[in-house]
Amino acid sequence: MSNVIEINGLTKTYGKVTAVDNVSFKIQEGKIYGLLGRNGAGKTTLMHMITAQLFKTSGQLKVFGEEPYENNRVLSQICFIKEGQRYPDNFRVSDVLKVSQLIFPNWDQELAYSLITQFQLPLKRRVKKLSRGMLSSVGIVVGIASRAPLTIFDEPYLGLDAVARSLFYDKLLEDYAEHPRTIILSTHLIDEVSQLLEHVLLVDKGKLILNEEAEDLRGRATTVAGESSKVEGYLAGKEVIHREQFGGLVSATVMGQLTVKDRDQASKLGLELSPVSLQQMVVHLTNGKIDREAGSTR
């Protein structure tokens, strides 16, 4: 499969602040990626560089094999739905659709209007007057109907209720099935989208700390609970990503698949093992207490 994005040692600094710190990864064609991390971790800066809205400080950045800056061969293939996308003050929802039709080469106007109806968006209302949820819906409609070979959603479901979110997942999967493309979902709330993702990129404090297939991550972390003396001994040589003390008890989360031997040992020590969800793993990895870089477990 060919790479849609190739990033090598990409860095962005603002004065003394490093927003994106020596990040390297590749994005393959046709997959759904999750770009995860807390607010302020550097996700938005990263996406702004990929879409040539911000200038990198150093490093390499190739999108569809080329530099994206002022490059229509690259930019015309991208649809980036920004969380803070600004619209002209007097723009109506219908104006967004008319302009999108001219800007995105693969735009499907019929699909756009059908999505507008399903998301119950008022065509004639000014974008400025829309609620947060409606604004998110406009972004979703544009993102899906653009059929751009690289579609990026930044915090796509802010303010959306459960029904609208579910509609988003349905419509996205439906259109993705018919028109496969590369999709990046960037969010700090991984919970619901985790099932949609094929690959996970986790950013923390400007660094990429996880770059793996979502399926390989599920069940990768395990929580060990029991008497602190026994747990501590058991943890030796394992990558501990979280630790909680409760009286004489310790509950610790370790990364890495446990072997049969590990499990037997835990059982003999009377320790309780429980699997950790992808969501919980991400929370532990980004709680600010550990330093990690992608690839260190492989």
């Binding site: 997959k31 759904i32 579910s166 997942y169 349905d170 999967l173 439906e174 993705y176 099935a177 099932q195 949609l196 993702l197 094929e198 979502a214 399926e215």
Partner: peptide, 13 residues
Amino acid sequence: NQFAAFYQINPAT
């Protein structure tokens, strides 16, 4: 795709 749509999960999975 039917499975993916029904469970709202990635078709590759």
